[in-house]
Design a protein around this nucleic acid. Structure first.
Lengths: 158, 158
DNA sequence: GTAATTTGGTTGATTATTCAATTAAATGTT
DNA sequence: AACATTTAATTGAATAATCAACCAAATTAC
């Protein structure tokens, strides 16, 4: 086995020397879970959850999106996103309309109430984010997203 | 506002200069989702899913655990973990017994079949992990877990 | 121009997660 | 020792996510 292979062996769950505490994906999962739980604490009093919030944030940034655009960015299954969107529609947070250009696509857009809602969540979560970034320098944060991106790209190649 | 505050502003969703593509938690969520989807592809043919697998991996490492031990490590809600464990028990993957030392706790343990199953999954996911770590050096992986750990700690302080 | 295929989305049935309430054992208090 | 509190786990009801099957519009092939 190559020198590189030997060194990296402990990161393979099938290896004898595997150590879960050194395993990046264990921490990705844990961090994501903790982050989600903290966000939900903030969202709960306003009858929101993290699924809705992710959709709302994407719409705030991109203006209007099709259901599959949202599914792609939020990495969710199509039926899941469809149902979240229609839940949000029932709650008055988004509008859903058939596209003029392509009769198959549903164009989703935040309503005024939806925009208002996003701003409110943003304000209320600010403290949480400041806490999360405590002690980090700008290059360190950049480095983090860069490393995560590389893992993401590696897993993206089919 | 402080010099640090100004530099880090673009990482706050409430800020004008916020850029979601630079936002670490967006990538944590995306990477976790992509990773989960890829793992599930492998697990599906053997009637497993990522929840069961996480529990199985933890048990493989720790030997035996209480339900709340599992909940803590997997960062899941107690009722959720309880139900996953009993699902796995019905499938013959784990045993559940009342603790001798403390009558409240349920001690969960992999069965022989459960152990066999974990080994099989480990083999089948090996390629996926090799792909994920493609192009990474050992220090880079270490750096990744270290950075994720710091975010985790920041969010852990209640 | 018609048939076949692909793409985008929706729906119903199934499965999983979460909340709220409950039980039971252990610990603490007086 | 009796009572209150905390901890560990479980259950039923409600909510959400996923799979499979489906429909309809658009694109491609012939």
């Amino acid at each position: 086995m190559s020198a590189r292979g030997t060194k990296l062996e402990k990161y393979l769950p099938s290896s004898e020397s595997f150590d879960i505490n050194e395993f990046p994906f264990y921490w990705v999962a844990r961090l994501n879970a903790l982050y989600s739980m903290e966000i939900e604490k903030t969202l709960k009093p306003m009858k929101m959850d993290i699924s809705r919030w992710r959709v709302a944030m994407l719409l705030r940034i991109h203006g209007e999106m099709s259901i599959s655009d949202i599914a792609e960015h939020a990495l969710g299954k199509l039926p899941t996103i469809t149902k979240i969107v229609y839940r949000m529609k029932d709650e008055g947070l988004v509008s859903v309309e058939q596209s003029e250009a392509d009769g198959r696509v549903s164009v989703v857009c935040l309503t005024d109430q939806g925009i208002e809602n996003v701003e409110l969540v943003r304000q209320r979560t600010e403290g949480l984010f400041k806490r999360a970034f405590q002690g980090f320098t700008e290059p360190q944060i950049k480095k983090t997203t860069q490393l995560l991106n590389r893992f993401f790209d590696n897993l993206s190649v089919d």
